[in-house]
Amino acid sequence: MIKTKGLVKVYRTDEVETTALNEVDVEIKQGEFVSIMGPSGCGKSTLLNILGLIDNPSGGEYHFLDHEVSNYSERQRSNLRKNNIGFIFQSFNLIDELTVFENVELPLIYTKVGSKERKERVDEVLEKMNMMHRRNHFPQQLSGGQQQRVAVARAIVNNPKLILADEPTGNLDSSNGDDVMKTLVHLNQEGATILMVTHSQYCAEFGNRIIRMLDGQVVTENVVQQYL
């Protein structure tokens, strides 16, 4: 599903040039649950963003679903993204002005799903996330865990092939964090490919493979012993 070769990302400001990714080769197969770990600034979020098609690499190749996408325009990436990828962020990134229902509905609006089907699918996924009773609330009226559940609902409402999670438990207490992780595992079992960036070894071990990064490079890859 995902294959990169010699992926490079360089940030330039007027005086400094920072290499965030240095010749990164990763491959992720359909149905995998991969965790990316590493210290702050090692490039894991940069990698996630490039793999999630919200950023372009400075060099190297990136094959996503058999497309070479490293030189795609924002419009092309946007099209590929909205149909195939769901995002979960550490800070939830819900739109404050929209209700729970409307937040989750948004991806369906952008992929031009009809309103009746939208309602059904949003209700279905809210039910699944156990958020039905909060569907008309605004994000500010929810707890952190609830907000992240809404964010997860929004990420999966379009049935994406790939779910990208950037420290999904970073802003949550351990019990809410566990809930989110269990949900991800569940989604993985239903067939979604999941790529997650995390600081926590505990969370990382929910996945079936861990990629460790340091200074913009992949240092080790190991398979997690499944204990769930």
């Binding site: 999630g52 919200i54 419009r75 909205k82 149909n83 948004l106 991806p107 952008y110 992929t111 929004r154």
Partner: peptide, 16 residues
């Protein structure tokens, strides 16, 4: 801007 980027990531195009 934050709202715009969320919308973009979720799939909004410039015209919308």
């Amino acid at each position: 801007a934050k709202e715009v980027s969320i919308r973009k990531i979720i799939g909004a195009n410039r015209r919308s």
